[in-house]
Amino acid sequence: MPAKPAGFELDPRLERDSQPLMWLGLCELRLMDDRRWPWLMLVPQRPGILEIHDMTPLDQTMLIFEMNMVSQALKAATGCHKINIAALGNMVPQLHMHVVARNEGDPGWPGPVWGFGMREPYRREDLHQFVNTIRSALSQ
C-alpha cells in the first residue's frame, strides 16, 4: 500500500474497527469487521478533512467515482437488494464513507446498521475470503 500523505492520520477508532483492503487512489478501502453485513468504508487520504465540502472539487469527483466503483463491486459480489451509503461522522469526525450491502431480513432491516446490536467480528478465514471476493469484483 502506498505511503500515506504527509499529515494524514487514520482515526484510531476506524483503525480498530476495520481492516485495510486496498488503495484506490484518493481513498483507502477498508472492511468493517462486522460479519452481520458486507460493509466497506472509503477513507479519503487527506489530512484535516471532516466533510465532503471541505474537499477540493477534483477530490470530490474522485470520491464519487471511487464510491460508485466500490458500490458496484459490492453489489456484484454479494447480490444484495440495496446498497446503503452514508457519511455520518457523529462519533468519528474524520471523513469516511460507509458502503453497506443490505438485504430484506438482514439484522436490523429496514433500519440503519449503526447502533444495532453488538458487532460480530469475522472469523479470520471468512475475512480473507470476503476480501478476496471484493478485490476480484473490483478488478472486473
Rank of each mutant, 00 (worst) to 15 (best):
P5H: 08
A6N: 12
G7F: 10
D11R: 10
E15F: 02
D17L: 04
D17F: 03
Q19M: 07
P20F: 12
L24S: 11
C27L: 01
C27R: 01
L31N: 02
D34P: 12
R35T: 15
R35L: 15
W37G: 06
W39L: 07
V43N: 00
G48N: 03
I49K: 01
I49W: 01
E51I: 13
D59V: 05
Q60V: 02
M62E: 15
I64M: 14
E66D: 05
E66K: 00
N68G: 11
V70I: 07
Q72E: 15
Q72S: 12
A76V: 03
A76G: 06
T78G: 04
G79P: 12
C80N: 13
C80K: 10
K82I: 14
I85P: 02
A86F: 05
V92A: 02
H98T: 05
V99R: 01
V99D: 04
N103V: 13
G105D: 04
P107R: 06
P107G: 07
P107W: 07
P110N: 01
G111K: 11
P112F: 09
P112T: 10
G115T: 08
E120G: 12
L127K: 08
L127Q: 09
L127M: 10
H128G: 10
F130R: 04
V131Q: 14
R135V: 06
R135P: 03
R135L: 10
S139T: 13
